[in-house]
Computed example of a mutant assay.
Amino acid sequence: MSTLSADPAMQAAKELSATLFSKPFVFIRGVPSLKFLPPEGPPEIAFAGRSNVGKSSLLNALVGVKGLARTSNTPGRTQELNYFVPEGYAGDADDLPPMALVDMPGYGYAKAPKDQVDLWTALVFDYMRGRSTLKRVYLLIDSRHGVKKNDEVVMDLLDKAAMSYQLVLTKTDKIKEAGIPRLISETLAAIKKRPAAFPEVLATSSEKHQGIAELRIAIALAITL
């Protein structure tokens, strides 16, 4: 579902992805505010998206550990920045993991109390603006609904902060397969003039495990840039 080429850089990224995801990932920390962030060290890859877009399900599929990131049909369940790293690292300066994955609180959930939404929003946006080890944000878009206004607000922020981000379509098993290429084209058109957007859209299905290998390779490439 992606257009990853077979050039040397992509081949190296493919090999690196196999190494990065060869170990099971473990949860190491929930961060309710920026003062609880771990010290900057290994590269970080973050996942953003509207509430109930499927971030937790995608992370579980990505790392191959069922139930690692909690899933729920209740939007807004993830309320912290949740950090995951490959198993077996001490976490000190001499034994850091090769990368960390960060599951961010969902945005755009209108039924949550406004003060809670404001706190979540401030945490996520401040993290994206100020974390030097953050290499890329993967912005998840529900394939059934496409890019919404609140997604555009987040993209505006990422563009302003010059924070590299890439769009990932989720739940593609819920739409007709024949419509996926058109949806990818429409999504690419929506980000064509956005300076910080990576010019490739990935299509995934956590349930069918589709597009996961391509996402792993994209992550490996992102942390080497």
Rank of each mutant, 00 (worst) to 15 (best):
M1Q: 09
T3N: 15
S5G: 14
D7A: 03
P8N: 09
A13D: 05
E15I: 00
L16N: 06
L20N: 08
P24F: 02
V26K: 12
V26T: 11
V31Q: 10
S33G: 00
L37N: 09
E40W: 00
G41L: 07
A46Y: 01
F47L: 12
A48G: 13
A48S: 15
S51A: 11
N52T: 06
N52V: 08
V53C: 04
K55D: 11
S56F: 03
A61D: 05
A61C: 05
G64I: 02
G64R: 01
V65P: 02
G67H: 06
G67R: 05
L68D: 06
L68S: 07
T71G: 02
S72T: 14
N73P: 13
P75G: 08
R77T: 12
R77I: 05
T78L: 08
N82D: 14
V85L: 05
P98D: 10
P98T: 11
P98L: 08
M99T: 00
M99Q: 05
V102A: 04
M104Q: 05
M104L: 15
G108P: 10
Y109R: 00
A112T: 13
D115N: 11
A122M: 08
L123F: 10
V124G: 14
V124S: 15
Y127T: 00
M128S: 02
R131E: 12
T133S: 14
L140D: 10
D142N: 06
D142I: 12
K149D: 11
K149Q: 13
V153G: 00
V154A: 13
M155Q: 12
M155G: 07
D156L: 08
L157Y: 12
A161N: 09
M163W: 01
L169N: 13
T170E: 12
K176Q: 15
R182N: 10
L183V: 09
S185M: 11
S185P: 00
A189F: 01
K192D: 13
V201R: 04
A203C: 05
T204I: 07
E207P: 01
K208R: 15
I212G: 03
A213K: 06
A213T: 14
E214T: 03
E214G: 03
E214S: 14
L215Q: 06
A220Q: 07
L221N: 14
L225D: 14
